[in-house]
Structure formats: structure tokens, C-alpha cells
């Protein structure tokens, strides 16, 4: 049995068709993700439209410096992941794994900085949660801003954590380099997901950190 046949699922005629189906599946999944995040962004937009001054003032409580650094880091990780996709296409094992490792490390740094931000906001009593004191010095409607902030950033962080876990598993699989064609396809599919996570963050950062009064 040829190497190609070994990883070709029976419902496909050839590897090209299987590869095409994989990419289409990921794009379809990303479309559903777009609607998930789009719904929350829509809620944010409506509330910001209803209370522009309150939302604009509340945004000043977020750490613009840390948010900006995190955005820059995520864009670098987007580059390393895209380069990893090109490296695996050239069947360069060590380079592929190194670039995926860099993506993984940058993602972890992003989440660590996000954790620092959450801790800062917790210390400043800005978490609008039951059982915690919400001590923001402003109108009650500002609580909605912080609700959106924590929901959007947590949803994004969760997606990042899932992406990082998949990249880590792929790196373990990739060390063996037994089926490079299959690995190539898997890296490309994860690369699509990672770039989508980048795009979502660009809008999270812009909406929450930059639309300040």
C-alpha cells in the first residue's frame, strides 16, 4: 500500500480532494465562529451606541499598553504560524517544528499578559461578578462595558488555549514525521484557525481598548 493510500480516507477519490474537503470544513467552522463572535460584537455595538460616553469613559480603565503589546505579539505569532505552513509545504521538519514552537511560546506569553491584566482588573475591583464588589467610579451602565470586556476577551482566550493545545499535539505528532503529507494538511488547517483568532483579536482590541472617549 502506498504512503498516499495509507492516510486517504475511503470516502475520497484522491489526496487533493481530501485536502480540499479539509480546508472547506475549516472555513465552514470559521464561518460559524464568525457568527458566534459577531453576535457578541453586535451586542457591544448596540450598547456602545446607546451609551457612547459611559462606554468611552470606562474604556480608560483598560491597560492600553498591555493590550497593544499583546496585539503586537499575536501578530508575530500569526507570522510564525504562516511561515510554519510554508516550511511544512517544503517538508522542512526542523524549521516547521521550530516555527510552531515559536507560535506556541508567543501564544503562552499572550495568555500570561492577559492573565496579568485580569489580575490588575480584579485588584481594582472591576470584575462585574456575583459575590465580588464592583467598585468602578461611574454610572451603573458602565457595568455592561466590563461585562462585554470579560466575555469577549475570555472567549478569545479560550479559543487561543484550544489553538495552543492543538499546536502542541501536532508538534508531538510532527516529531515522528511519519506522514508528512498528512502533517502538512493538518498544519495548514490549524494555521487557518490561528489566523482567524488573530483577526478576532484585532477587533476585540479596537472595540474595547481604542474606542475610548
Amino acid at each position: 500500500m502506498s504512503t498516499e493510500r495509507q492516510y486517504l480516507a475511503e470516502q475520497f477519490d484522491d489526496v487533493g480532494q481530501q485536502r480540499h474537503a479539509d480546508f472547506l470544513g475549516m472555513w465552514l467552522f470559521l464561518a460559524t465562529e464568525l457568527l458566534l463572535f459577531g453576535g457578541v460584537f453586535m451586542g457591544f455595538a448596540v450598547n456602545r451606541w446607546l451609551h457612547p460616553q459611559i462606554f468611552g469613559d470606562a474604556a480608560h480603565e483598560l491597560d492600553l499598553m498591555l493590550g497593544s503589546i499583546n496585539t503586537a505579539i499575536l501578530l508575530i505569532s500569526g507570522l510564525t504560524m504562516a511561515l510554519a505552513e510554508r516550511a511544512v509545504a517544503l517538508r522542512r521538519k526542523r524549521l516547521t517544528l521550530a516555527l510552531m514552537g515559536a507560535t506556541l511560546a508567543l501564544g503562552v506569553v499572550f495568555l500570561a499578559i492577559k492573565g496579568m491584566e485580569y489580575h490588575k482588573e480584579y485588584s481594582e475591583q472591576l470584575l462585574p461578578m456575583t459575590g465580588l464588589v464592583f467598585a468602578y467610579d461611574g454610572p451603573a451602565e458602565a457595568q455592561m462595558f466590563f461585562n462585554f470586556y470579560f466575555v469577549l476577551t475570555f472567549m478569545h482566550a479560550l479559543h487561543m488555549a484550544i489553538g495552543l493545545a492543538i499546536i502542541a499535539v501536532l508538534m508531538v505528532i510532527g516529531r515522528g514525521w511519519k506522514l508528512p503529507d498528512r502533517f502538512d494538511r493538518q498544519v495548514r488547517v490549524v494555521g487557518l484557525y490561528w489566523a482567524f483568532v488573530d483577526i478576532v483579536w484585532v477587533f476585540v482590541f479596537t472595540s474595547l481598548y481604542l474606542l475610548r472617549s
Binding site: G78, L79, M81, A82, E85, G191, L192, A195, F196, D198, I199, V202
Partner: peptide, 8 residues
């Protein structure tokens, strides 16, 4: 830019 180039 991300969609066109990073996502190819």
C-alpha cells in the same frame, strides 16, 4: 491583510 495573505 491577514485573510488574504496569512490565510492565503
Amino acid at each position: 491583510v491577514v485573510a488574504a495573505i496569512f490565510m492565503d
